[in-house]
Design a protein around this nucleic acid. Structure first.
Lengths: 215, 215
DNA sequence: AAAGCCATGTAAGCTGTTACATGATTTT
DNA sequence: AAAATCATGTAACAGCTTACATGGCTTT
């Protein structure tokens, strides 16, 4: 009935959404492995209930293979030859040049909304701490800035609502309850971030020292 | 390649998930209208940027029609005859007996996770305040209980982690950061709930008075 | 020889999103 | 007559979940 869609909705932009925490977690896990390679089953274990990332993002093995295929399509990983031909055949994936670049870009970018702290930011934090603690410090500072601006804008909105409610007193303050909720959540996230920052600073100093001693 | 699935995954359980805030919001909006009826376009406006619910859950008109069809399938709404045959034809939906029961059940049920406060709980709260403020008070108290138990269990987990970290000092406290985050978010939600409770109590008293004067 | 883990996936069905199609009525 | 608004949807597709299929290797 409708004419066929003029264009498939921009296949080039497939990987351009800011989200995709699962895919980027896979990139990060590959970067954490020596040689930057790993196969699906092994990566899937990193999302199990015992693994640290498993407390933040849970992935069934099927989804891991699905995401790896997508990463391959995007050119962020490449398939390497199977080095150990004993066991059941593996398909080891290796981080590509582009993949490394994309990972770095993503790790420096704070999340825009408070609700994304719980999943996406925690994944970024875990990977940044493991890969390059100085980057984690930077990420935390950027995120602090975002949250502070959010709180400013919510406070302003809250005061506007205050006067409007007194004028008409309709819909029993619901809008203010919503804004208060967001302020509470964002404030809590900010206070938590400050505590995390001091921890991360310790880690970064320790990593810096071991860098220096290695040289 | 695979044999066809033995059973379609339990069509009877279609409406049994605890979630479905959009569908239940539609039930609630119908209940708020005199006669318990409304048509799609009108309901869709209640999810626009100006409407109070629009600040919590945003729905495109297409999704509203989609959900209404599902509610019809579940027997929670029925199609009523179009009473005003002037304008472009409407399809007014009416809340059924089952729909009213389902709405009540859902409104009394607190949400299980902190992350569901932002959307699902706020929808429940809005509808309960509008329909029956005494129910809102009850919902808030139930929700308080859930959050308090959550905080207890997170605190316990937090202390277990503390000792484990001192033992091995591996994976740089990440698990504790995650638990702290959840504690912070849940604590903030609880403090917010307490403030909302006093507001809701005022509304309930006012509603009780107007109930009494109507009698 | 059987049980269980290693390892890679596919199938089928849901939900959600975006965009568009269709046409009547009201306002400018 | 044109534009806006009322009103109801469908098409196309992307994403997620759950379950299962397939087979090699390892341990008991």
């Amino acid at each position: 009935m409708n004419p066929p869609r003029a264009e498939p909705p921009d296949a080039a932009a497939e990987g351009s959404q800011s989200g995709m925490p699962a895919e980027h977690a896979l990139l990060g896990l590959l970067a954490m492995r020596e040689g930057g390679t790993g196969h699906g089953y092994e990566l899937a274990r990193s999302f199990g209930p015992e693994a640290p990332l498993g407390s933040v993002i849970r992935l069934e093995p099927g989804m891991v293979y699905h995401h790896l295929k997508k990463l391959e399509r995007l050119g962020w990983v490449t398939v390497a030859p199977d080095a150990s031909p004993d066991r059941p055949a593996r398909r080891p994936f290796a981080l590509s040049r582009d993949g490394r670049g994309e990972l770095r870009r993503w790790l420096m970018e704070p999340v825009a909304h408070t609700r994304e702290i719980r999943l996406e930011f925690l994944v970024k934090l875990y990977l940044a701490l493991a890969l390059e603690p100085a980057l984690a410090l930077r990420l935390i500072d950027e995120q602090r800035g975002i949250l502070e601006r959010l709180i400013d804008s919510l406070s302003e909105q809250r005061e506007l609502g205050e006067t409007a409610v007194n004028a008409e007193s309709g819909s029993i303050h619901f809008g203010e309850m919503v804004t208060d909720m967001r302020l509470a959540q964002t404030g809590a996230a900010l206070a938590w971030l400050d505590r995390v920052r001091t921890e991360a600073a310790t880690v970064a100093v320790a990593a810096g020292r071991s860098d220096a001693s290695r040289r």
